[in-house]
Amino acid sequence: MAVTAIGKRGLTQRTAFSLLVLATAIVTIPVLFIIVYIIVNGAGAISWEFLIQPPSQAGKAGGIFPAIVGTLYLMLGALIFSLPVGVLAGIYLTEYARDNWLTRLINMAILNLAGVPSIVYGLFGLGLFVMAMHFGMSLLAASLTLACQALAMTITTSREAIIAVPREYREGSLAIGATKWQTIRHVVLPQALPGIITGAILAMSRAAGETAPILVVGAAFILPGLPGSPFDQFMALPYHLYTAAAHVPGMPKVTVWGIALVLLAVVLSFNSLAIFIRIRVRQRRFGL
């Protein structure tokens, strides 16, 4: 049974709702179009060689293997440097912090960290990790930069996951004589784990797609091999895509779409994984 209205007001309502539907279509249809377009146009470039060979002829031939590996390294690096501190910060905010000015300051900082433009993180990484700490244009510097950018997300998602753990569990544990840290370590964290993992995956997916920071901190367009240590230079998919699309004359279009497809596949599969876990956790929580 829907609320129906008759006459002029009914007409106004129908017109208004049609406009809302139109807005929703404008949001959704281009997304689907973009994804389908990239799949259709990029599929031609995808082959085993494309995925496992290094590039040749300025990227016009050969594959993108070092870029794929570089991106995986970056995702891992960003995760290693941002997840532990993010979780600990989340624990602090939920379990230890009192409602005072410091907590408000921390929350405000988190909020604003999320809004800092990626290029500014790039400048930060360049000034701090590349220059001041002498890591150079390296995988390490880029990972640390991306980790700083991911920090807001890992803290927020950890905090939400920890808050969601029912109080009764904590009380139950404390009541049998566990210390506060034991309670957190053995009761709260295991319960919050799926939520924390979801946040971690989202942070990795974000790190995989970021271009501006690594452009500043110094990704390389073409490297013959893989980085041998954290202090080596690296290739990465998004930077490779940017250079191939914008700076290499005579680049075959199919190769460009192919790189875009691989990047999109990495990012979106991680995103879907996170969404999937979230749905599963929610279902389990409601006993479905």
Binding site: V27, T28, I34, V256
Partner: peptide
């Protein structure tokens, strides 16, 4: 929106949020 439709549209919006900016740049460029 009926809840079924909403549950379909929301992931699409999340999908949009997940597309890397360099890919959006590529779409704009080409």
């Amino acid at each position: 929106a009926p809840s079924k439709l909403r549950e379909t549209v929301k992931p699409v919006v999340e999908l949009l949020a997940g597309i890397p900016s360099v890919v959006m740049g590529l779409i704009g460029l080409l």
